[in-house]
Structures are given as C-alpha cells and as structure tokens.
Design a protein around this nucleic acid. Structure first.
Lengths: 251, 251
DNA sequence: CCATCTTATATCCAACTAACGTATTAGTTA
DNA sequence: TAACTAATACGTTAGTTGGATATAAGATGG
C-alpha cells in the first residue's frame, strides 16, 4: 500500500501542472506604535466577501518572485514605500479561509518606526489605523478599534494573524533586537522602555530595564543628547553593530 | 503611481487564475533521537535534480487540503502512519530553490518518539536515518551523517530547513512542552534530561534540571516505577493536562 | 544669578532564583 | 547482608531582579 501511494505521490511531484494549485498570497501586519499603543494599518473592504470589514494589505505572489520580495513589493504598493522591518510570521492555509477560492497566505510582520508610520499614512491615505486591544492578544484572535473607539471588525482570519504577530513580537522582544525596528536610529533609553511597555502591555522597572539592556551589549552610546526638552536631556543611543549574530530567517 | 499599481494589484486579486501560480508543497523534518543524537529520516533521490542526494519527505498540497492536513497526509504516506507531533516551521519561497519549477514549500517539524521512529523505519524502509551534527546547527545549514559515518549531502535547501528545525526546537525546549513529543507517555526524569541534552548538544546539571521541570507543573507523578533495571528504579511521570495553555499555532 | 522643577543617571540593598556539590535513600545483585 | 548504582533530597553560593533612594544636569521663572 505504501508502494502504490508513493507512486502516486511520485507522479504528482513530477507533473503537478496537471493538478489545480492553490493561489499564494502574502499579507502584511503593518505595525507601529501610536499614542503608546500597538497600532496596525488596515484597508477597508468595499466589496464581497467581508465587505465593510477591515483587512490586512496583501497581494499575490508572482511566479518569479521570492516570498520576501513579494512582501517587500506589497509594502511598496500598499504603504507608499515606507521603510519597514519585514519578517515572515506564519503561513495560513485553511481551505475555507477565503470563500472565493483557495488562497494560502504567508503572513509577514512589518514593523514601522513612528516616522515610517506617519509616512505610510501620508502616502497611502486608504490605510486606516486601528489600535490593538492588548488584553485580546493572548486569546486566539484580536480586537481592533479605530481612533474614535469604534470597533473595527477584521476580515477573513486576519484577527488571528494579528494576534499571532503580537504574540510573536512579545516573545522575541526581550532576547532579540526586533524592538529596535520600532525606534529611530537614535533613541533614548526611556523611548526604548516605552516601546517595550507598549508591546508587552505592562509597566517595567526602570533601573532593571536599563541594566538589562546595557548588559546586552547591543547599545552604543553616542555622545549626543536629546534636545528641546524642558528638563535634563537623556543621552542618545544607537543599535550597535552585532557581528556575532546573523540569526537568519524564522527565529 | 501608487494609484496605477494598486489598480493592477486589485485586478490580480480578483482574477489570479489568469496568472501562473507557484506550486505549494509541504516538507517534513522527521526528527527523533537515535543513540542520544538528533536523527532525521531522509529519502535518497534517484534522479535529477540532486540525484544521489538526500531529501526531506514531502508532497504537494491538494487544492482542497489544509496545510496541516497535507503535512499529516505526507506523514501517513511517507512514514507509514507513524505517530508524530506536527508543527509548522517556516515557509521557503526562493525562486530557484527547485530547478524544475517554482515550488514554495511549507516546512513542518515532525517529532517522533523512539517507538514511532522505529515504526517509521519498519514500515517505510526507504527512509534513511541521518544523524545531525550538533555543532553545524548554529550555522545556517546542517551537515548529516549516516550510521556508518558517511556524509549524507542534502538536496535543495533542505540543509537550511533542518538547521532551522533544530534551532527552533532548541529555543522552545525549555519553556514549552515540545520536548515531551520525543518521549513515550510514561518516562523517567532521567529520560527527559537525556532528551534535552541530546537536542541542546550539552550536558545539564541533574538536580537543577529536576527542580526546574517539577516546578514547571507539567509533570504528573504516577505511583509507578520503571522495571528491569539493575539499580534503583526511577519513578515514572507523565505529561499532565495543562488546561491553562492553548498556545495555538506558530509560537 | 539663584531657587526650583523635572527627568536622567548612579548606587545600594533585599528578595528571589538558579546552579552546583554533596549527602542520603532505596532498590538490585552477588 | 554487603556492595553497587542511580534516584532523590539538602544546603550553600553566586547571580539576577525589583524597589527605593540619592545625585546630576539642564530648563525655567523670579
């Protein structure tokens, strides 16, 4: 029996053009911080299916286009070329996730600095910001609200995708350098802590946080200080080059 | 310009049947422990491309088949139905990863207990065990050796896939319950420690390991003890039901 | 020019956690 | 019953974290 089946599989392997293929898409979780809360950029759907609901920007993967390139292209097309840290998240392949046809989507996390977030909004006015309710993340799927507090229902399985994105980010925040993707090149320790607190949805102990981060060895102090404050300005740091780590994809 | 491009993307979204689609496959990293070393099960390729090299068992995703179902089917077809813990790993989508045609593959980690490993070998004799060199894991791709010490060169990008699989496993081992997928239902603390040491490629402190594991609250002591030893038999534990955690996919 | 305000930065100590070495216990075998 | 092996328990030490406090630095207003 195993013989016959592997024969069938063998044929399929060598002539898959004879079989119907699922479509392959990428969807982007464009995530930034707005008012100290994790905020994603969504497109309102104006037609079936899920008309009126809000969806992650996405697009189909070209036949000669690598997955990462497709994600970068969607970022260009749908977010006006704003710079973002792109990272593959998970691939969603339930059969009925799109009622029109079979679509497998590779979800990407796209982290935006405050400047990139503003740039995306300016260049792509259709993108609507939605703040993610921190408490909803640990459940399987997330709830999102517009700036005026109105609920933004998400289309397809996108609420699950966003929940996974934030869970993943929370998990990696403390031991990896992803957090810096949400900050400008020069930042203060307080700003770094604000980012961590916004993502984790908690408050953190300041001296302990300082120590941990400085002990990590990631931070290079520039001699410079922030300006325009009415109090003692904090020193500006930048993410140091870390030659030891080249974690490659998927960690 | 953004307008014209999103128009094109819009059309693609609604009529993707007009565009060539990549094929979508799943590949399985069938991983067990053999002689205290992480060992994977491979199929030797007998024709172009990469003839003579060894490949992960895989198969194409059916048009009406969920990704997870495709992985389970490949497990049935290629490993004779051995039980395994399946978990999606990462999706590999470089354009030239298969010279025959464009294939995007969703890699799955399939963890086998010792019994399941033996069962797979018995029912699917074509599967060849290859031990993974622990030191090669942290580099981007892995080297694999047959039981007689001969190198087993891997086909396609499969060495990268295996490296990612073991890195992921190492990362999750301490804070998640994946490690138990490599053990039978009843096991001793020493066996659990052996699994951790094999995956991590290090030795661990015994009392510290015991305490950590017991403090996790995962382990249910059965009153039973192992038999057939020539020394003091250790107590048998089982993985307790943990109602609090339903981590869902992708963590 | 000085007092005062705010926040950054540094220091200190208590509490907790994790690691390691060592002692003890409980089986098996001879 | 003694010797052996490995499980289990204990205790000490080192390291890490959390909280509080003290000091420093710049801005502002009188």
């Amino acid at each position: 029996m195993s013989q016959a089946e592997s024969e069938a599989a063998f044929l399929a392997r060598y002539d898959p053009a004879d079989y119907a293929r699922p479509a392959v898409a990428v969807d982007l979780v464009l995530l930034g911080l707005s008012g100290g809360r994790p905020t994603i950029l969504l497109l309102k759907r104006d037609r079936h299916p899920h008309a009126g609901r809000h969806a992650l920007p996405g697009g189909f993967v070209g036949i000669d286009e690598a997955l990462d390139d497709a994600a970068a292209r969607v970022l260009r097309e749908k977010a006006g070329g704003a710079r973002a840290h792109l990272e593959q998240l998970y691939t969603f392949g339930a059969v009925e996730r799109d009622p029109r046809m079979r679509i497998i989507t590779v979800a990407y996390l796209a982290l935006l600095t405050e400047a990139a977030f503003a740039e995306a909004r300016a260049r792509a006015p259709a993108l609507l910001p939605g703040t993610v309710a921190a408490a909803s993340v640990e459940a399987g799927s997330v709830t999102v609200h517009a700036a005026d507090g109105a609920a933004l229902p998400l289309a397809f399985d996108h609420a699950e995708i966003v929940a996974l994105a934030i869970r993943r980010l929370r998990g990696k925040l403390d031991y990896s350098e992803v957090g810096f993707a949400l900050l400008p090149e020069l930042f203060t320790l307080r700003q770094l802590q604000d980012v961590h607190e916004a993502i984790l949805g908690t408050t953190l102990n300041k001296p302990a946080f300082r120590r941990r981060m400085l002990d990590r060895g990631w931070l290079d102090p520039t001699g410079r200080f922030e300006t325009g404050t009415s109090y003692r300005p904090a020193e500006l740091y930048r993410l140091g080059r870390t030659p030891s780590q080249t974690p490659a994809q998927g960690d």
